[in-house]
Structures are given as C-alpha cells and as structure tokens.
Design a protein around this nucleic acid. Structure first.
Length: 419
DNA sequence: TCTGGGGTCCTAGGACCC
DNA sequence: TCTGGGGTCCTAGGACCC
C-alpha cells in the first residue's frame, strides 16, 4: 500500500514569533500582512476570542487587541523562511521523497512503509520537529494527497496526529464539510451544495462524474477521485517557479513618477534576485500601478503593460530599465497611487536560455550580478544596489512591530540576560 | 488616518496555419 | 446565393491555495 503524509505547522508565522518571544506563549498572537494592513495569522488563543477572519483590517481590530492583551507582530519573512528550511530538514529524515508544498507544509511519500506503525511514526515526526525547531505541527496520513489533507485537518482537532486507514475513511468523510476539502473553494462548494452534496462523503459517492467534470472542470473530478482513494495528484518537485514577481502596497500615497520609478527599481531588484536564486531567466516583464480601490470616492486608475525580451534575462539593470520604459507608457499624472508591482513571466532555466541571433553574446551583466549577490549575501541585502532604487524610499512599506531577524542576522541574535 | 503578497491550474475563445 | 475541417498557440479570466 502507498501512503502519503501531510505535515503542516500550526499557525506557522505566530509559532515562529513565539519561539523567540517566550513571553507570548499562552497569549493570543496575531501576525500582520505587509504594510501592517491586515491580520494574516492567528494562534488558537486568538481564534478563541473571536479573531481569525483572514485579512481583517488591522485598524478595525486595534481596540479588541488592546482589550485582550494580544501580541501583535509585523510579518518577518526572513525569520519565517529560515524556520521553514529547518522544519524541512527535519522532515527529510523521515522519507525518501519530500514535496515542499508551501512555506509551512510538505507532503511525505511513504511507499513500502507497510511494516511501520504509521501512527507512531507520525508522533515521532511531530516530536522531532518540535524538539529541533520549537514549532508544533500536525501530521495527517492516508492514501492520497487529498485524503492526507483531510486527515491533517482532523489531526489538528485531536492530538496532532491522525493515520486515516481505509477502515476509517468513510466514517471520517461523513463528518467533513465539502467546503473544507483542499481545492474546493467558495464557488465550487456552492455548486456542490446545489446538488445536495454537503459532506466529503456525499461528494465521494456522487455518481454523475460527467456533471462534476462540467461544473468543477478537471480539477474537481481529480479531487473526487482522490477522495475515492485513486491517486491523481502526483508527488512533484516544485523547486523552479514558472512565474515570479514582487509587488507592494506603499506606506503612504504616492503621486509622482519619480517615486514610482524608485519603487519599481526596488521591486525589479528583488524579483531579479529571486530569479537568479532559482537559476532561471525570464522572457517577459509586466509592470502594474494602481490607486487605492478602498477609497471609492477618489478617481481610480489601474495601469499595466508588458514587454518581452529576445533572449531570457535575469539582469537587474536590464529589468529596471524595462520597468521604467513601461512606466513611461502607463503613468498618468493626477492619481493617488497606492500599489505597484513587477511580474516576471515565461521563466526558463538559465541553461536552456535561447540567445539572441543578432546579439551573439548575451547582454546581461552576469559577472556584475554575481558579485553583487555575493556581497549582499555576506554583508546583508541592499549593501550594494542600484541608485535608481532611491535613498530615502519614502513610499516604503510600514512594519512597526517587526521582530528581529534572530536566525539570519548577526546583529540581531537573541540576547539572554543572566542573573 | 489605516484594507497583503505570491503562487498554480484550467478553460474558452481569438488568431493563425494548411 | 452558396462560405470546411482540423489543428496549434496564446492570452485573459476564473478559481483556488497558503
């Protein structure tokens, strides 16, 4: 029998903060999105007192936060990325095949593990991750990805581990709302409800496959098969992304082209670094700028355009230049801009880059990029950067409650007072 | 006053080809 | 007046996920 495990960190961002802020243990914790705009992560203590609505604006929560003595943090992605890497390292010891699905969860393949007691195995995984990283996780094990996701959700309501054997599947699915199935969102759940399908078990047993195909497309049919124990979603290696990009809301409203140019230079720089890290090049660059859609009384504008390159590139300076050319086309004066972004599409591994027939050699400043990456890695990001990114960056994202980069910066190590 | 960011996959429909 | 059939590629938009 082939089994698949899903390990998922509990309230990942909050738990990371707790590891280094022990005084927050037992207290409700909330982590805010970029720009301290809204809440994106909650501990169970926070959920228990009524928080937990994804992306609820922070300013609407302030009073209740004070009342309940909630610990609030701005998001600290360098900390979370590093903690994520630690968790995955521990998990690698438990399986020959690991699929890192997101920053806080991974699928583990357990083919040929029949002679193992998988329930105890799951407990051991949980123990080890906690011991080596300080982070609590849930472990769900079953025969397909969708079923292991179900098992994982059930595990979190129990003691953190659930091995959903064949005999337990139907009984579990009968108590599992169809909306909670991985891949069934708001719209699909509504359609299924119309057919009288309320639970995962109803969905599994629903006979008219063609109607499901029509309503939920291939994706929905595959989920249905997976519920029946037929594996449709293979283990994958998703190391290389197919698209990437960087976008941000501004800390303040932005009116001038000059500031937008700075921001786009900064976003291009970050996006190009992501590209080089995964050893890819891009063939297309999209830029967008837009106003604050929540301020309905103000005139709204959404500008976007793209450009393509004859040969793939990951050169920061080329991308900055490209983003500025696009901005020249889409910028309209007189608007209050709140957000902008740079998207890189059509990514290809650098080794497969098609060179420009008329250019001969690639026109990327490759050595320059390499040296800049090395220096920034050693002395901290942004040690060297293009002057186009600006000096003051007044538009910069707000992060008033950011914790230290405890694990990735020598200057910000945890300090412990003795005595 | 204050409302995130980064991804994936699928399908329909247009453009184009012979 | 009468206007085919089969195919590919690309893109926009919807749905979903963490």
């Amino acid at each position: 029998m082939n089994y698949i495990g899903l390990v998922d960190c509990n309230s990942f961002y909050c738990s990371c903060e707790r590891v280094f802020n022990p005084e927050t243990r037992g207290r409700p914790v909330i982590v805010l999105s970029n720009n301290d705009g809204c809440a994106i992560a909650f501990t169970k203590e926070a959920k228990a007192i009524g928080f937990g609505e994804m992306c609820e604006p922070y300013f609407k929560m302030k009073e209740r936060i004070k009342k309940y003595n909630v610990a609030v943090f701005s998001s600290n992605y360098s900390l979370y990325d590093n903690m994520s890497r630690r968790v995955m390292e521990v998990l690698r010891d438990f399986t020959p095949r690991l699929e890192i699905y997101s920053v806080d969860e991974a699928f583990l393949e357990f083919n040929g593990f029949d002679h193992y007691d998988l329930e105890s195995y799951g407990k051991k995984i949980r123990q080890d991750v906690l011991r080596f990283t300080g982070l609590p996780v849930g472990v769900g094990i079953s025969t397909t990805k969708v079923l292991s996701k179900v098992a994982n959700k059930i595990a979190k309501k129990q003691n953190g581990v659930f091995f959903m054997t064949d005999q337990l599947i139907d009984q579990s699915l009968k108590h599992f709302p169809v909306r909670d199935i991985w891949g069934i969102g708001h719209a699909s759940a509504a359609k299924l409800n119309m057919l009288g399908i309320k639970t995962a078990y109803d969905f599994k047993m629903y006979k008219d496959d063609k109607l499901i195909q029509k309503l939920l497309t291939k994706t929905g049919r595959e989920i249905q098969e997976e519920l029946r124990g037929v594996s449709c979603l293979a283990m994958e290696n998703i190391e290389e992304k197919k698209n990437t990009g960087t976008s941000r809301s501004f800390g303040v409203s932005v009116y001038t082209k000059k500031e937008l140019k700075e921001a786009l230079a900064e976003f291009s720089t970050v996006a190009a670094e992501k590209l080089r890290r995964q050893k890819s090049v891009c063939y297309s660059l999209t830029v967008f700028i837009h106003t604050n859609s929540f301020k309905e009384q103000l005139p709204q504008y959404y500008g976007t355009d793209s450009t393509t390159f004859l040969s793939g590139t990951s050169d920061t300076l080329r991308l900055i230049k490209g983003s500025h050319l696009i901005l020249d086309k889409i910028f309209r004066p007189g608007f209050e801009y709140k957000k902008a972004g740079v998207l890189l599409n059509h990514l290809v591994p650098k080794s497969q880059n098609q060179l420009d027939l008329f250019q001969g050699t690639p026109n990327d400043n490759e050595e320059l990029s390499q040296v800049v990456d090395l220096i920034n890695k050693r002395y901290g990001s942004h040690t060297i950067h293009s002057a186009a990114c600006g000096i003051n960056q007044n538009w910069k994202t707000i992060a008033d409650y950011r914790s230290a980069k405890f694990t990735t910066s020598w200057n910000e190590l945890l300090r412990i007072k003795l005595g």
